[in-house]
């Protein structure tokens, strides 16, 4: 892992959360983000897992030269770890996580693993004068889960204070949310391109952060979650051809999570079907 990189100043930036080998959604998201005239696109880690043909996602990312940070997946793959370092605690969650990891590990080229090993753990950038700190899980831990219902305002204040940032942009949970504790300060979880948001919809999400131009309060930023429809049936077919678990394919087809459920907090769990 290389040290924190500072990318400079921007007006409108798209953030891609966990891609989980969903190369089809990644392709659509790139088109959509470019059509929205963003001046940067940043990938927040967890490029592999869950989906088929992990190298296809990496090739698209490298081809597009997107700035990217390491998620726990890239840490694990580049260091040859035995598991994905996702941070699950339940045996069933771990069982499925291990299936994904073993599949992804054996199908990711050594060259791509080396590329992952050289990605930074954090990126800093400025949007509309606000200092953004980009991380995978949280600024203090690559696999910390920041869920909406478990990330209270006082804790957000502490993170911003400890890490000298106005806005923290993260992913890792697979669910997008934001909480601005005051104008231009707070947390944005960019969600995931890899699988739907456990809401019964098949599309996936990325996030745009931009300067709020007409605002009574200086330094206000605007956060937009952008749905990305893609050929999910084709992804499901590819997953079936690769003999990935039917539970994963069901999630792609229905929009409801069937695994990694135990890690969900009470509120987020209640919104899902399983």
């Amino acid at each position: 892992m290389t040290p924190t990189v500072d990318l400079g100043s921007f007006d409108r930036v798209a953030f891609f959360g966990g891609i989980y080998s969903n190369h089809l959604a990644l392709g659509e998201a790139l088109k959509l983000a470019r059509s929205r005239k963003v001046d940067a696109i940043v990938a927040l880690g967890d490029f592999g897992a869950f989906g088929p043909h992990p190298d296809r996602t990496i090739e698209i990312l490298r081809e597009a030269s997107l700035p990217a940070i390491q998620g726990n997946y890239e840490q694990a793959l580049s260091t040859g770890a035995e598991d994905c370092l996702c941070g699950y605690t339940d045996p069933r969650d771990n069982y499925y996580a291990q299936l994904s990891y073993d599949y992804t590990r054996t199908r990711t080229s050594a060259e791509h693993k080396a590329w992952m090993g050289n990605l930074p753990g954090h990126i800093r950038m400025t949007v509309g004068g606000r200092k953004l700190l980009l991380c995978h899980g949280s600024p203090r831990k690559v696999n910390e889960f920041l869920w909406r219902s478990m990330t209270p305002d006082p804790f957000i204040r502490k993170l911003l204070r400890d890490h000298e940032a106005d806005v923290i942009v993260c992913t890792h949970t697979g669910l997008h949310w934001k909480r601005l504790i005051e104008p231009g300060r707070g947390i944005v979880n960019a969600g995931a391109l890899g699988r739907p948001a456990n809401d019964g919809q098949t599309h996936v999400w990325f996030t745009i952060v931009e300067e709020q131009e007409i605002s009574p309060v200086p330094g206000e930023i605007q956060v937009e979650f952008v749905p990305v429809p893609y050929d999910h049936e084709r992804l499901a077919r590819e997953m079936a051809e690769e003999s990935l678990p039917p539970e994963f394919i069901e999630t792609i087809r229905t929009g409801w999570w069937t695994t990694c459920l135990e890690i969900l907090p009470a509120k987020e769990r209640a919104l899902g079907k399983h």
């Binding site: 990330t151 006082p154 993170l159 204070r161």
Partner: peptide, 9 residues
């Protein structure tokens, strides 16, 4: 006191 310290849960 916990609020000032940024307690999470």
């Amino acid at each position: 006191e916990a609020e000032a310290l940024g307690v999470k849960e």
